[in-house]
Nucleic acid binder design. Structure first.
Lengths: 221, 221
DNA sequence: CAGCGGTTGCACTCATCAGTGCAGCAACCC
DNA sequence: GGGTTGCTGCACTGATGAGTGCAACCGCTG
């Protein structure tokens, strides 16, 4: 149908992309075991045989798609950090805006979080190196990138802590993780108002723990 | 092989128990789709046909097992609350001990948390009423039971908050949820020392947020 | 034009698995 | 003893799905 261009790893790039997008949808919708390569081929408007020209295996296809998705989300989060945390105007406002946008990513990448749930379910059957790849590209990697931003904020005396990594993890715990767990990792979306409440109060708690002037914030949460 | 006794819902109770235990193991090990009723029958030392005498369906079997497991864990948590939170001697010590025991449940009920991961993966394909049943029996229910204990503690002026439910959720977030997420819901067990660190610091943060006398605890976390 | 890399569609193998049907058997109750 | 309930083992159906083989085809490049 389309022709040539020496593809990166065999096969035409547009076909490859069509396959990987269809695979993301189908794996997200059906889970790993239920997802059928016939269905993926149909949705990608591609012959099933072509899939095997690009990927050796159902398993390889799944992992490739998972890592791509993780990279996309990590990159999206990086952009959010740049936008909200590069220049701090009002710390509470900026943190809240950042965490809110971050939490909204859960509803904006539904197929990806479906994949995350599937990976959780399959984790015990995953070979160790694959699991390490996932950890390097997945959510934990996005978490790590937060620490340097907090460190810079602390350098400006707007926060106080010993360990930036731990503080970053605290912020994640108090905001993102709460949203993730209560929404079943995005499977049962929370009303926007609930998300706002969780994030707002989470950030407030974070500031009460790490802001250098405890009396500038309300005592009650 | 064994004989009679008019069972509760058809079938001999010991057979039913053997089936449900084997099902818990196999579902936990293989996930829903991969788990085969033939294997469950073998592990339960029971004819496959017998499973269908007790449960109408693979799906019913799975859900029944999941709810049983959830009830067992909820009950275990209730016992822990009674043991650690009924009489408070030293609040920080007691909370830490409770949360630590609670976190250890993750490694003590590995098949159950494997089931939880499977449910997360299947959640979008679950009928709404089933999902509600799960929410009523599963982790969220265990969470709710914490609030009254915290309320009693607050009545004794050892804690201060407006909303016991929210405070309970905070404690869960700062301790349990952190352990759950970082261990992939128990799939990749954390070293005991890491768990201790998470819990200890989580409880300290909780107390800094909710203890009535802020200056009795370290400022630094 | 010839050759090549990539795609297509289809038929096919092989395996797995949910769920059923049935005949026989074991223990219990009356 | 006779009737009942439940378990067993086995064979069977029907469906689904991973992965392969192959012949034809398409569009580019040289």
């Amino acid at each position: 149908m389309s022709g040539r261009v020496p593809a990166a790893s065999g096969g035409l790039p547009d076909k490859r992309r069509a396959i990987s997008e269809a695979a993301r949808r189908v794996f997200g919708r059906e889970g790993y075991a239920r997802a059928s390569l016939d269905v993926i081929a149909d949705e990608a408007r591609v012959a099933k045989r072509t899939i095997y020209n690009h990927y050796t295996d159902k398993e390889h296809l799944f992992l490739s798609v998972a890592v791509e998705g993780a990279d996309a989300v990590t990159e999206a989060v990086r952009v959010l950090m740049e936008r909200h945390l590069r220049k701090i105007v009002d710390l509470e406002e900026d943190l809240t805006a950042f965490c809110l946008d971050r939490a909204r990513a859960v509803t904006e990448f539904p197929e990806h979080f479906a994949l995350v749930r599937t990976i959780h379910a399959e984790v015990t059957r995953l070979p160790a190196p694959v699991l390490e790849t996932w950890m390097a590209h997945g959510p934990p990697s996005a978490h790590q990138r937060l620490a340097p931003y907090l460190q810079k904020i602390a350098d400006r005396q707007l926060l106080r802590f010993d360990d930036a990594e731990k503080a970053a993890n605290r912020l994640n715990t108090l905001t993102m993780n709460d949203v993730l767990i209560r929404s079943f990792y995005g499977a049962v979306p929370l009303p926007e108002s609930v998300v706002e409440e969780i994030i707002t109060e989470g950030v407030q708690a974070f500031l009460r723990l790490y802001a250098p002037l405890p009396d500038t914030h309300d005592e009650q949460v």
